[in-house]
Amino acid sequence: MAEQHTHAPESKDGHVHAAEAHSHGSDAHGHGSYLHHVRPYLIVGVALFVFTVVTVGLSYVDFDHIFGSHGMNMKIGLAVATFKVCLVGAWFMHLKSEKRSIWIPLLFTFFFCLGLFVLCLLAYFNPIMTTGHTHH
C-alpha cells in the first residue's frame, strides 16, 4: 500500500478533489432526494432477506443425496453465506468504492485468514494426523 503515495506533499492537489467526492458530508448531497440515495441500500437489504430465506430453504434439501457427494449442503450453504457477506461488504461497508489503502490490507487479512484455514486443514488431512477417535 505504500508505493503509490511516494510524493505526499506534491500530489496534494491531485488528490484533494477525489477526497472531497468521497467525504459524503459535503453539501453536494443536499440536492438529491433521500430515497434516491438510499435505494441501493434498500435493494441490498431486500436481497439479504431473500437470500436468508433461500439459505434456510436449501438446508431442507439433501444435496449430499442428490449429488452423491459428501458435504454438498455445507458447500452450498457457505457459498450462499459468502455471497451475502460480499453484498454487505460491497454496499453497506462501501468496499466497492473504497480506497486502495483500505482494501489492500484487507486482502492480506483475508489471505492470512485463508492461510490459517487451509494450512490447518492441510495438517488435518495429512495421513499421520488422522487418528481415530475411540469411543470410551
Binding site: 492470512f112 492461510g115 494450512l119 492441510l122 495438517a123 495429512n126 499421520i128 494426523m129 487418528t131
Partner: peptide
Amino acid sequence: SFIVWAHHMYMTDMGPKVAAF
C-alpha cells in the same frame, strides 16, 4: 512470517506434506 508457523510443530503428528511446505 504468517505462513511459517508450523515449523514449531514438527514434533506433533504432522505429516510430511505439511512439514515440506
